[in-house]
């Protein structure tokens, strides 16, 4: 099967709507297809991977821990918009430390998160074959 570049465009906060959860479910299934996968978190999508989510009081499943599994699925290109973070008073320190083990570098643990400018995001978007929006 041919390899294509897939990007998952995540622009909505979790819990208020189901898009974030069901987007994550697609990404986890997609990993089995061995495509080139990137995730982009922009606008309120950045809240999907923020630290310290606690859903006890709303009776919904806290699925934020699942993002930690992405590295094990070889999903390690997680792009986060610098502008979206800044607009919301957030920084990289507010995000969950999502990592992967680099098999080409003696399984060293590395961060999957790349904070990118709009210019970088534009370039990454322009390289994609398929964009799935949630």
């Amino acid at each position: 099967m041919s390899t294509k570049k897939f990007i998952y465009l995540n622009r909505k906060a979790p819990y208020g709507t189901v898009y974030a959860l069901e987007s994550l479910e697609v990404v986890l299934i997609a990993a089995a297809f061995e495509q080139d996968v990137s995730l982009a978190f922009i606008d309120d999508g950045v809240y999907q991977i923020i630290k310290g989510q606690n859903t006890d009081g709303i009776g919904m499943k806290n699925f934020s821990k699942t993002y930690h599994a992405l590295g094990d699925y070889d999903v390690n290109k997680i792009y986060v918009s610098a502008e979206s973070l800044e607009e919301r008073g957030l920084s990289v320190d507010d995000l969950m430390p999502l990592t992967y083990e680099d098999e080409d570098d003696d399984w060293a643990e590395k961060t999957s998160i790349k904070i990118i400018s709009n210019v970088q995001l534009t370039k990454i978007m322009s390289e994609q074959d398929v964009c799935l929006s949630f």
Binding site: F6, V26, I29, A30, V130, L132
Partner: peptide
């Protein structure tokens, strides 16, 4: 069917268009 069908559609098709 499963979500794999969406990924497969992305792989097999020349274009995938999302409506939401």
């Amino acid at each position: 069917s499963g979500l794999g069908q969406l990924i497969e559609a992305g792989i097999q098709s020349d274009r995938l268009v999302v409506f939401g």
